[in-house]
């Protein structure tokens, strides 16, 4: 994937560049706002990661300018400004996601991958049935079966599972799950999402020889095929 990173802090930039190169992305780093904008206009990228505060031209203006000329690739904001209203400003300007510093690399990677897959999955939104391995989800009846056996889920557990199954193989961090399933941006000091996942796991994976709900160490959770 061709990714452009506009970030003036070299330490953060180095770490992102190294990390993304390691997982096989092609990344270009620019530390100045104006140059960043012209590079983004002149070249084709699949994704843009942009800092909010930059020399010469700030991130918001860059994104507004890009959206105004019709560039529609996904954009992730990075920022030390973590307030909800800042977040809303970022998203209103045309950003697709907003990540507050400091963030774990796994969090960034997870979000990049969700955004990269977003475009083709639009067709899937009309689907009313989801399946993974021997798990079936009926989105209309809101019914889940595993190996033909009906599983009772709470409404939020169903939504969690739906999110994970729809994006099977994709890692979701705790914050991403909280944001996408509950729809609120919420800071918590507790392991509340872990408890939800463990309840969900008990219901769908208990007794199964091939558990599909997996924990990714230091990152989050995903639904994937069991690797022995």
């Amino acid at each position: 994937m061709q990714i452009l990173l506009i970030e003036d802090d070299n330490a953060v930039a180095d770490f992102i560049v190294k990390g993304l190169q390691q997982v096989g992305h092609c990344i270009m780093h620019i530390s100045n706002g104006k140059q960043g904008l012209s590079t983004a206009i002149d070249n084709e990228f699949d994704l843009l990661i942009v800092d909010r505060m930059l020399p010469e031209l700030d991130g918001l203006s860059i994104v507004k300018a890009l959206r105004a000329i019709g560039k529609d690739f996904p954009i992730i904001f990075l920022s030390a400004l973590g307030d909800v209203d800042e977040r809303v400003k970022g998203l209103k300007a045309g950003g697709d996601d907003y990540l507050v510093k400091p963030f774990a690399f796994s969090e960034l990677l997870a979000r990049i991958e969700v955004l990269a897959k977003r475009a083709p999955s639009i067709i899937n939104t009309k689907e009313t049935m989801l399946s993974f391995s021997d798990l079936r989800m009926d989105l209309l009846k809101r019914q889940v079966t595993r190996g033909g056996k009906v599983i009772e889920l709470h409404s939020k557990e169903f939504n969690l599972l739906e999110k994970l199954v729809k994006n099977a193989g994709q890692v979701f961090t705790r914050t991403m799950l909280l944001e996408s399933v509950w729809g609120y941006h919420f800071d918590t000091k507790t392991n509340v999402i872990d408890v939800h996942i463990s309840n969900l796991r008990k219901k769908i994976d208990e007794g199964s020889s091939s558990p599909i709900l997996q924990t990714v160490r230091g990152a989050g959770y995903k639904v994937d095929h069991h690797v022995k």
Binding site: V12, F15, M53, A80, K101
Partner: peptide, 14 residues
């Protein structure tokens, strides 16, 4: 926020 969180990010990442 900008000046302190950024080094914290580096520390966290390392």
């Amino acid at each position: 926020a900008h000046d302190l969180r950024t080094p914290l990010t580096s520390l966290h990442n390392q």
